[in-house]
């Protein structure tokens, strides 16, 4: 047994153990902290499996926005304390356990019944990479071969933000989301919020740019930009914009709209919906990605900020 195999077994055992512990532990906050650490270890596994694009997404979402969201939710649940009062009865528990076991069995069955070798389109995707001029096959699949899915994903993000906003009370409609954070302007947090965002913006744009030929892309870059925006908001250096602002709504729809326009032009003048002319494929994809990184950064930031709580007029 080589040293690499030992390492893989240890990594898998640690991740499985942590996963089980996260489910079993009673205290919400401990479970959340365990889950944040779990995401990090899973990123290690993705790198080991040579799926660096996925590892990057895990790092960008799990390390930043996901942790903030979950820890905030855990803190709110603890404050409320209503959850502890309502302990579920035996029937509810038994049915939940039965449902979980059934789901696990179905998943295990699906994995075990996979044909060997598994059906794959990967060789076809790699062989046709020349058509777009980009050499990262994940970006090729996301932006060209299955561009329809990516476009619809962005529409889902838009629907999510509408869902969050619809929780706003009438009086705050069109106002600013979330509480106004205040912090000592000379404190540690404000210092970090001044120092980190310039670096973060460069890294975010770099991740978008390198996505053409290496692991990276608009979603990961957008998640990093959103984290930086959120940091300045949390540190009290910036306030969330009122959701009725026209420029904000324009940014929110820019990505999906550009995607849709390019798709319809392809339908009118080209072969099919979302077909790019080969000579223009690369500039078109990059253009869509630039619009998308702005949309994704704004959407993720606003999703984290929450429903409008304060009226736009002070």
């Amino acid at each position: 047994m080589s040293i690499a195999t030992v390492f893989e077994i240890v990594l898998a055992a640690v991740v499985l153990g942590l996963g089980i512990w996260t489910i079993v532990v009673r205290e919400t906050f401990s479970a959340t902290v365990g889950f944040v650490a779990y995401g990090l270890l899973v990123a290690l596994i993705w790198v080991r499996l040579d799926a660096v694009d996925v590892a990057l997404t895990e790092a960008a979402i799990g390390g930043g926005l996901g942790g903030v969201l979950l820890l905030g939710a855990a803190a709110r649940l603890r404050d409320a304390d209503v959850m502890a009062a309502e302990t579920p009865g035996k029937v509810v528990r038994a049915s939940a356990a039965a449902l979980s076991v059934l789901t696990t069995a179905a998943l295990a069955g699906a994995v075990l019944l996979l044909p060997d070798p598994a059906p794959t389109l990967a060789p076809a995707a790699v062989a046709n990479a020349w058509a777009t001029g980009l050499s990262n096959s994940v970006t090729n699949v996301l932006m060209a071969f299955r561009a329809m899915d990516t476009m619809l994903e962005k529409v889902v993000l838009l629907l999510a933000i509408i869902g969050v906003w619809s929780l706003a009370p009438d009086s705050a409609w069109g106002g600013r989301p979330g509480p106004r954070h205040q912090a000592d302007p000379d404190g540690v947090l404000a210092f970090l919020a001044r120092l980190l965002p310039p670096v973060g913006i460069v890294v975010g744009i770099y991740i978008l740019w390198t996505g053409a030929d290496h692991p990276g892309g608009a979603f990961q870059g957008g998640a990093i930009l959103a984290s930086m925006w959120l940091l300045t908001i949390i540190a009290g250096l910036a306030d969330t914009p009122p959701v009725s602002r026209r420029w904000l709504r324009f940014i929110l729809v820019a990505g999906p709209c550009l995607f849709l326009v390019v798709g319809l032009v392809g339908l009118l003048f080209g072969a099919a919906f979302l077909s790019y002319p080969p000579a223009l494929a690369k500039p078109l994809i990059l253009g869509i990605e630039v619009a998308m990184i702005l949309t994704i950064a704004a959407t993720l930031g606003l999703l984290l900020a929450g429903a409008p709580e304060r009226s736009a007029k002070p």
Binding site: A43, G72, L189, G200, P215
Partner: peptide, 25 residues
């Protein structure tokens, strides 16, 4: 080599969980 980019992202966002902890926790 792209693992460096993953590490860079993690290093950039390393403070976020703790900030969420002190702000909301």
């Amino acid at each position: 080599p792209a693992a460096i980019d993953v590490a860079l992202t993690l290093a950039l966002l390393a403070t976020f969980a703790s900030i969420a902890f002190v702000k909301k926790g």
